[in-house]
Design a protein around this nucleic acid. Sequence first.
DNA 1: CACTGTCCCTAC
DNA 2: TAAGGTAGGGACAGTG
Length: 692
Amino acid sequence: MNNGGRKRPPPPPQPSPANPPKHQAASQEDEFVDEDVFLDETLLPEDEDSLILRDLDKRHALASRLSRWARPPLSDDYASASRNVVFQQLEIDYVIGESHRELLPNSLGPAAIIRIFGVTREGHSVCCNVHGFEPYFYISCPPGMGPDDISHFHQILERRMREMNRNSKVPKFIRRIEMVQKRSIMYYQQQNSHPFLKIVVALPTMVASCREKDASFLIYLSLTIALRYSELISHTPEAEFSKMAPFRILSFDIECAGRKGHFPEPGHDPVIQVANLVTLQGESQPFIRNVMTLKSCAPIVGVDVMSFDTEREVLLAWRDFINKVDPDIIIGYNICKFDTPYLIERAETLGISEFPILGRIRNSRVRVKDTTFSSRQYGTRESKEVTIEGRVQFDLLQAMQRDYKLSSYSLNSVSAHFLSEQKEDVHHSIISDLQNGNAETRRRLAVYCLKDAYLPQRLLDKLMYIYNYVEMARVTGVPISFLLSRGQSIKVLSQLLRKAKQKNLVIPNAKQAGSEQGTYEGATVLEAKAGFYEKPIATLDFASLYPSIMMAYNLCYCTLVTPEDVRKLNLPLECVNKTPSGETFVKSSLQKGILPEILEELLAARKRAKADLKEAKDPLEKAVLDGRQLALKISANSVYGFTGATVAQLPCLEISSSVTSYGRQMIEHTKKLVEDKFTTLGGYEHNAEVCI
DNA sequence: CACTGTCCCTAC
DNA sequence: TAAGGTAGGGACAGTG
């Protein structure tokens, strides 16, 4: 048994025997009315089965509830592996052609990408992508391999998998598994009495041995897989397979006792409280509420208060809690930049080496990495990256900053904006005083800490983040974490890879050395006619102009014909389109482009979102759905942007400049059409004029 | 003051 | 290392 699975001590003892239970109950009732604003009916449990832990006995209810929800430990079969994880789904995207240097560091030739999606430990359970774990496993093979070699490569891959599998001590107990493919998020339907699909991952030694044995087949991260991917049956996320998985969502918040006038630093300032709420996706109430405090804390209605004498105990209690509850998704406010790194760095300071075992890979330590993200769309943001294998971290602050333009992103103002609820800020200057007071002042602090854990969960539900992000992840085929931590281009690339694989195409590494191609001509903007118009003006608008152009004219990497090919191939005129910018593309009758297909899918998804929008009644729900369809629109537009991004993975200015040239042409044409038709000569009242 | 370049923002 | 695009307006600073 590893540390991560170590049993948490049985229900902690009542923290403060000095307070007789009766007195507690009385004071609780009093305070509940005027002080515990957040403990209103929205948070209080409704049924008997829920946790109302007014006395010691009820603590056992928590313990049993917790163990009921705790997932079974890994089988002993896995004990021999130094690191392992159980995945729900394996998918192998095997060839992307010449390697992308970014995606495949250190590899030169055509490459395979194995993507692994999903994690589970119990059959009916659900999972998300292998977040945190590198979502791509890189395998490279000798340079010079082309599309014709795909099947050969396939076989090599398969053989290698088998070999590795033989080497491992893991028995094969899965014969047939039906998988639900949702790309990023999946619902696993148990077809088999045995719950496990097993994949043992990343035995570091195997990397070395593979290199020695077969230099032409480098494996950067080794895998041992218990079933062959050909045995997987994947379903598109439709009908019953489009259901949302009941993720287990942990929302947490920490409080630190900072020194006066200083922002808390993990090198100096202790973690004094950690509040946790655990909710099943789709349910309105958390099924676990607790708070871990340093020093005693008076009881709180509906909350399991666990008090400890040392900070070390607090941290370890939290680690054990995480491992026991085994959440799929971890949320909070600014957790990525503050809470999570703070806990880890604090544990480092205190020398608690066994603390950062929080993920689903046994004995894998969580590390903190500094990252910066900068793009024109989202601006530059510095952040810390903490990978917790197998758990999605969803920072509501990040999501807010990406999705909404607000004047302030404090939890307080965001909650006020979306939930009409304030957070009753405890000013940071009095946190230390509250901590140094008595059990009652620490209780007050705990209530606020809990509220700070509660608000992100409310935001998550209210803004339908799980639904919207899962939708986006499904459509684009990237893990959810990418949606928060990366830009638009990875989404386009991911869709390209998916489509290319379907069609047995390889994507070249187009990023040439010194790609100095400059910029290209953009859209026409007609001159506006300024003035105050009393009568309404008719507006003309193209529906998704650029995507429509790409679809209509079949513009794609794989339909572009170079000038020399035009000469060589002597293509009949009726098979090609010549764009206003002078490029040639074959028509879809000859070969349908990948990009148009991707766009069709995106626009179909957008259509679905718009249909939902029509159904929606609640204004906020409407706003959220509107945001979703807008996000899909932006994704569709970024397909065009992707081709014009000269610093991206696969620039193709022939496509982007063709799109804009068609766009200009169409706008001119429309203007002419309208102005020619609606004239006084044609019997209309006025001459029409088309401007901005 | 006229003009230019930069930054920042928004529209599409 | 990763990063959708171009067009265009307004505020502001610097310069002759």
